Simulated scan of single mutants.
Amino acid sequence: MFDPSIKAVLCDIGGVLYVGDTPIPGAIEALVRIKSRYSVRFVTNTTQKTAQQVVEALRSMGFDIAEDEVLTALDVTKLFLKNHDSRGFYLLTDDATAFFDDLNEIERQHYVVIGDAQENFTYERLNKAFRLLQSGSELIAVAKNRYFKDNDYQLSMDAGGFVSALEYASGKEAHIIGKPSHDFYRLACSSMNVEPAECLMIGDDIESDILGAQEAGLKTLLVKTGKFAVQDLESGIMPDFIADSIADIP
């Protein structure tokens, strides 16, 4: 492919495989080629869908992906809460909140968990989260992305602005679970039994996908689809490789 030391691939989903509900031209075929040579994990910061919902959506578009090949920020957040024997107060969508229902029997609630809550970002709920933080709870950001490309092909505000608002109001810094967290990338690599230096990250987000993966020790490839913008190449962040789309990866 690019480097004989590469043994595995991490691949972002939204903006790399599809935009809206339409596959990137050539992405389905490209994925077949990549999976024929490398172990692959599909990683996403989406906090609106569980891994099962992500797989169902991708399969409906024609992608051949198994549920155990997908790692979401919600998966890692649940693992974090279990390891800390705690449940959370969730600023998430209703579907994402239901993903944590099996933790409801845990008595300890030591964390405020925030992701893209969409209509659930009400003042009442944000203020409740603020008061819990003032009372000693800690803040977990499932992801802190600034924006994403929505189903109407326009950019929409992601959870990052709301995370920053709670950080500013409470004086506490969020613990970020998803990309660009080093722990997220290293967990994804370990699930394929490879070291970070043996793995290539394919993404469309210059900060979360490219810089985050580089800082975790991975090689990176930036695609010019999804949320990519020309000014990304002027940010000072230099991916190892650049392609017009995943279909153009040799």
Rank of each mutant, 00 (worst) to 15 (best):
F121I: 15
T77Q: 06
T50N: 04
R87A: 01
I24Y: 02
T47Y: 01
S181H: 02
M192N: 08
A247Q: 00
Q53F: 07
L221N: 06
I202T: 02
S191P: 14
A243S: 07
D101F: 12
K78L: 03
V223A: 05
I249Y: 10
D204W: 04
L133Y: 09
G62K: 07
K35L: 03
S39H: 10
A188V: 12
R131Y: 07
T47I: 10
G26C: 02
I34C: 12
L200I: 12
T50L: 09
F99D: 01
F100M: 05
I28D: 01
D12C: 09
I114N: 00
G212C: 07
T97A: 14
S137C: 15
G14M: 04
G171I: 08
S208Q: 12
D232V: 07
D12L: 10
K49V: 10
N145H: 13
I237T: 10
D205M: 03
D64R: 13
D204G: 06
S190P: 02
Q48V: 15
E195L: 14
I246R: 09
V194S: 04
G20I: 01
G115C: 03
R146Q: 13
A30Y: 04
R125W: 09
Q154S: 13
S235T: 14
D248K: 12
N120D: 04
A174I: 11
I176Q: 05
L200P: 09
G226H: 00
H84Y: 06
D240V: 13
V112R: 11
I13A: 05
F130H: 08
D68P: 02
D102M: 10
G88S: 01
K7C: 00
D244L: 10
V113H: 10
E124Y: 06
D94W: 03
V70Q: 01
D205L: 04
K35T: 06
D101E: 14
M201C: 10
L233Y: 00
N145W: 08
A96S: 12
K78M: 13
D204A: 00
I210F: 05
I176C: 06
D21H: 11
G217C: 00
A27F: 02
A243L: 03
D183E: 14
V142Q: 09
K172R: 13
V230G: 01
E29Y: 05
F63G: 08
E215H: 06
F89T: 15
G212Y: 07
I242A: 04
E173W: 07
P196Y: 03
D12R: 13
N104R: 15
S39K: 13
V32K: 15
F42Q: 08
A51S: 15
N83Q: 15
R33G: 05
G88C: 02
L221D: 06
G171S: 06
L218V: 13
D183C: 07
E138I: 04
F2A: 05
S137H: 11
S170Q: 08
T122K: 05
A159Q: 00
N145Q: 14
Q53T: 11
M61S: 11
C11H: 01
E29C: 12
R186D: 01
F42D: 03
E234K: 15
S5G: 12
V163P: 08
G203Y: 08
D150I: 02
F42N: 09
K128L: 15
E56T: 15
D94Q: 13
D158R: 11
Y185C: 08
L166A: 11
T225G: 03
K227D: 03
A229G: 04
L211W: 06
I140R: 08
D248H: 14
F228W: 11
G171V: 10
I237R: 11
G171R: 01
Q214W: 06
